[in-house]
Design a protein around this nucleic acid. Structure first.
Lengths: 209, 209
DNA sequence: TCCGAAACTGAAGATAGCTTCATCTAACAC
DNA sequence: GTGTTAGATGAAGCTATCTTCAGTTTCGGA
């Protein structure tokens, strides 16, 4: 098991010229590619650098260590999901609670399914890199957005929006994990999603008076 | 990141005398202890052996490699959970669907909360050791049991028990993960569980005609 | 009591992958 | 055109941990 818990400190150097930010992007992309193609067990910094078309040295110019590299990847991914959720929230203020639920489900699942293999691989990585902390940060913002959203629902609520958001997010996560871990996520997406909608709707109906 | 995906093959030796099975038990327990006390990153075979009061050599007599050791731990844990679920299933045949839901929730959460730190640590380990495969094996049996259980429900169902079981299990997993990853699982257990019951009940009601 | 098998021991070997750094090249400013 | 800084290189060092195995101890039956 890796020694990946080092304080993923400061990037060694921050891009100034254009070529260097190009390198950073290439490296992050390459990391994802290596992750999905050979798996996290065989992901080495050298291999990532090679795939990115740079040398290891360059990689270490922007990421203090392997852990930081993986964390950066995670962060990018989670920010995408968070972004999708925040957008959905923004677009459904003052809607009915059920519509909100539906919108969240679509936004979340679509974001995760955008790149199934990457999502699955990153789940695996997250526990090696204190992903919990990163998830908490990104998750916190999404949750906030969802709570605020629920608070604007047309219907009066019977309980704290926090509680509702918490439950919905937990269910969302559970289904999404099941989906990603299943044999063929793409094939099951629709039926899973439909069932999730049924479930969340049923729950949300208990939250309006 | 570890090279832990080796074919976790045959146990090198199988216990014959009493002392050796005692060693095996001690080693498995020690693994869990080390896991929860210093974390998977610092779990070394030597450290586990020390904690178990044996030498590394002994450890390697029963587990072909580190990966196999961790897998064995996972298996034990999952079997416990599976056992709890199967018992609950056996005790609630022909009950009402809602009662079944409640029973499953209690059984599952209680089993997981039995040893919170261990459960959380094992979640983290599982992705290093092809936990998915092990989970699939244990999960398959539980799922079977749940499907069979639902099929005996007093009420007529509106959809395939497989689908229902799948949804319930996904929700269960999602909530349980949220719980385990939260700051103080013990404190939140009750409220989370209550909300989960509300959610599952609401869902199950849509499954009876 | 004695012997063969089962268990146990732990220092040392082996390896793999992270990370460094002295050196080289490209970009930009003037 | 030239000086200065940013960026890139990659062979080699380093370390940590897994794993082995030759030798020792314990057990159980005869």
């Amino acid at each position: 098991m890796p020694t990946l818990l080092k304080p993923a400190l400061k990037p060694r150097k921050t891009p100034i010229q254009a070529r260097s930010s190009a390198s950073v992007d290439a490296i992050l992309q390459a990391t994802l590619q290596v992750l999905t193609s050979v798996g996290k067990e065989r992901l080495t910094t050298t291999r990532v650098a090679a795939r990115a078309g740079v040398s290891v040295g360059t990689l270490y110019q922007y990421f203090p260590n392997k852990s930081a590299l993986l964390q950066a990847c995670l962060r990018v991914h989670m920010d995408q999901v968070r972004g999708a959720i925040e957008t959905a929230c923004a677009q459904h203020r003052s809607a009915s609670l059920l519509d909100m639920g539906t919108a969240l489900i679509f936004a979340y699942l679509d974001a995760k399914m955008q790149n199934v293999k990457a999502s699955a691989a990153l789940y695996a990585v997250s526990s090696d890199v204190d992903g919990a902390a990163i998830a908490k940060a990104a998750g916190q913002r999404s949750r906030r957005a969802i709570v605020d959203l629920f608070a604007t629902a047309k219907e009066p609520l019977t309980k704290d929006p926090e509680v509702i958001a918490n439950a919905v997010v937990s269910a969302l996560n559970g289904f999404s994990r099941s989906l990603l871990e299943s044999k063929s996520p793409e094939l099951q997406l629709e039926s899973m999603r439909d069932e999730l909608i049924v479930l969340v709707h049923a729950y949300l109906r208990t939250c309006v008076r």
